[in-house]
Design a protein around this nucleic acid. Structure first.
Length: 481
DNA sequence: ATGTAC
C-alpha cells in the first residue's frame, strides 16, 4: 500500500517515490500535483500502476504522471515513460487503446456577438455532418488500398484529397504523419473496423465543442497563436476509433505470448511489452504509427465537416476556419533528450499526456517557434478548456510533456450510478451551454462532477514551469456521441 | 476508449 509519506517533495509541485521503495523499481516514480491532490490520487490504483511502470526494462530518469492522473489499462492515464532506444521496451498499454487520441483547436475570425443567435443551428449542422456513437460509421467507405494510403500518409492524404489545406498540415504535430507507419502490420480485422470510420467522432469523452475565448493570460503567445478575447473557436477531440483499438488489442495479445522468450517479467500482465528492437516491438511501432496516421486523418476529415457546416450557417470561405494546432495525447515517439548530461535517444510513451516542447525547438511549427508549441487542454463537458505554451523546463522534468485534460475522478460505472443525465443537460443549458448528444448514458459518464477541476490541473503544470497558460476557452455548444 | 464478452 502506497502512503503519502512515501512521497518526497523534490521541487515545487513535484513529488517522488524513491526507487528503493520497491526492489523491482529501476527509476523513481514522479508525480506532478499539489499536496492536496496527492490524497485524491491515492484513492485509485494509479500510483501503484506508476510504480509498476518504473520497473520496465530500459526506463530512463523516472516514471512520470501529470496532475490529471487516473487509473488506466496497466499504465496510469496522464503518464509519461521514456525507455532507452533501441533496447528498452515498447508497451501498447503505455500508449493506450485509443492510439493518437488527441485534440485540434480551430479558430474563427468571428466574435460571440456575431454568432449568438445561430449557435444552436450551427450545433445541429455539425451534429448532422459528423457521425458519432460507439461503432458508428460514416459516409466515407475506403477500399483496402485507399485505407492503406491513409494509414501511410495520415492527414496529408486527406489534404491531397481536398479535405483541407496545406496550412493545416503546418499546424499539426508531426505534420499529421508518422513516417514509419506500415499498413502491412495492421491486421485485416483492424482495417475492417476502420474502413467506414474516417470522419466519425466515436463516443465516451470524444466531442466537438464550439467555444469562446474568455480570458487571455499571455498576450505575446496569444498573438503568435492568433487568439483574441471573445473569439469563437471549435475544439475537436477524437482518435483512431475501432481501428486503433484493434491494433492495441492485437499487439497486447502478441506481446503477452512473447514476453517469456525475451526474459521479461512485469508486475502486472497489462504491462505487456517487447524490446523495441525485437520483431514484435518493430511491428507494433509500425502498426501504432499507421493507427496514429488514421487518427490524424480522422481529425482532418472532421474539421472539414465542421468547415462545411460553418459555411452553411455563416457563409464565407472554408479557409475562414483556421487550424491553430493539433496535438496527439496517446502516442509513442522516438525523441532525443538529455539524460545524465548526455544526449540520448528514447522511446517516449505518452498516455494521456501532451507534448509540450518549448521555444526554439525545431519540432515546433515556424509560426510558433519563438513562443513554444501550443498545448491544448480540453476541460470536461461544460467546463472551460485551456491553451498553454510549451516551456523548456518540460525537457528537464517530463520529457517535454504536459497534462492532457481534467482527468477522471469517478469511474464510468460510478458516474452512471450517481449522475442523472437529464439534470446535467438542464443545468448546462441554464448556464448557457447547449448539449447536442446521441446518448444519455454518455452524458452521465462525462458529467463535470466525474472529472477533476481542470483549472487546478492546468495551474500545476503552469506553476511547475512545464507549460504556461495562454488562454481560457468557455464552452457554448457541445456535440457528443 | 471500444462492434462495452469469445
Amino acid at each position: 500500500m502506497i502512503k503519502i509519506t512515501d512521497m518526497k517533495k523534490k521541487a515545487p509541485y513535484m513529488w517522488e517515490i524513491d526507487k528503493s521503495f520497491r526492489s523491482d523499481m529501476n527509476v523513481p516514480a514522479r508525480i506532478f500535483a499539489t499536496r492536496e491532490m496527492l490524497d485524491d490520487v491515492l484513492k485509485d490504483r494509479s500510483i501503484e500502476q506508476l510504480v509498476n511502470v518504473a520497473t520496465l526494462r530500459g526506463i530512463q530518469s523516472a516514471a512520470i504522471v501529470m496532475p490529471d492522473v487516473h487509473e488506466g489499462y496497466g499504465f496510469p492515464i496522464g503518464g509519461v515513460a521514456a525507455t532507452l532506444w533501441p533496447s528498452g521496451v515498447i508497451s501498447p498499454g503505455g500508449i493506450g487503446y485509443d492510439i493518437n487520441c488527441g485534440v485540434r483547436l480551430v479558430k474563427s475570425q468571428l466574435e460571440l456577438s456575431d454568432i449568438k443567435s445561430r449557435i444552436k443551428l450551427l450545433g445541429a449542422a455539425i451534429y448532422t455532418s459528423i457521425p458519432s456513437g460507439v461503432g458508428k460509421g460514416g459516409d466515407i467507405l475506403l477500399s483496402e488500398a485507399k485505407l492503406d494510403e491513409v494509414l501511410r500518409h495520415g492527414a496529408q492524404k486527406m489534404v491531397q484529397k481536398g479535405y483541407g489545406f496545406e496550412a493545416d498540415i503546418d499546424h499539426t504535430e508531426s505534420r499529421g504523419c508518422l513516417e514509419n507507419a506500415d499498413p502491412a502490420m495492421v491486421s485485416h480485422q483492424a482495417k475492417k473496423r476502420g474502413e467506414d470510420q474516417l470522419g466519425t467522432m466515436g463516443a465516451g469523452n470524444h466531442f466537438v465543442e464550439v467555444g469562446v475565448v474568455e480570458e487571455i493570460y499571455d498576450e505575446e503567445c496569444a498573438n503568435a497563436y492568433g487568439l483574441f478575447e471573445n473569439q469563437i473557436t471549435v475544439l475537436i477531440h477524437t482518435g483512431s476509433r475501432g481501428l486503433g483499438h484493434q491494433v492495441a488489442t492485437d499487439y497486447i495479445k502478441i506481446m503477452m505470448g512473447k514476453m517469456r522468450d525475451y526474459g521479461i517479467v512485469v508486475p502486472d500482465r497489462e504491462l505487456a511489452c517487447a524490446p523495441f528492437d525485437s520483431p514484435e516491438g518493430q511491428k507494433y511501432f509500425a502498426a501504432m504509427a499507421a493507427a496514429a496516421n488514421f487518427a490524424w486523418a480522422n481529425r482532418q476529415a472532421i474539421m472539414h465537416g465542421v468547415r462545411l457546416a460553418w459555411r452553411d450557417i455563416f457563409g464565407g470561405k472554408l479557409e475562414d476556419l483556421e487550424l491553430l494546432y493539433d496535438v496527439a495525447h496517446n502516442i509513442a515517439k522516438i525523441e532525443t533528450h538529455i539524460i545524465d548530461g548526455k544526449l540520448q535517444k528514447v522511446i517516449v510513451h505518452r498516455k494521456g499526456a501532451t507534448r509540450a516542447f518549448g521555444p526554439g525547438n525545431p519540432e515546433v511549427p515556424k509560426d510558433y517557434r519563438d513562443v513554444g508549441q501550443p498545448v491544448i487542454i480540453p476541460g470536461s463537458m461544460g467546463t472551460s478548456s485551456f491553451v498553454l505554451a510549451g516551456a523548456n523546463r518540460s525537457m528537464e522534468l517530463s520529457f517535454g510533456s504536459s497534462c492532457h485534460g481534467a482527468g477522471r475522478q469517478m469511474s464510468r460505472s460510478e458516474a452512471k450510478r450517481r449522475v442523472d443525465a437529464t439534470s446535467i443537460i438542464n443545468e448546462l443549458e441554464h448556464r448557457g451551454i447547449h448539449v447536442q448528444a446521441g446518448s444519455l448514458k454518455g452524458i452521465a459518464e462525462e458529467a463535470p462532477q466525474a472529472y477533476k477541476d481542470v483549472e487546478s490541473v492546468v495551474n500545476v503544470v503552469h506553476e511547475a514551469g512545464i507549460a504556461k497558460k495562454v488562454a481560457k476557452l468557455r464552452p457554448l455548444m457541445v456535440i457528443k456521441g
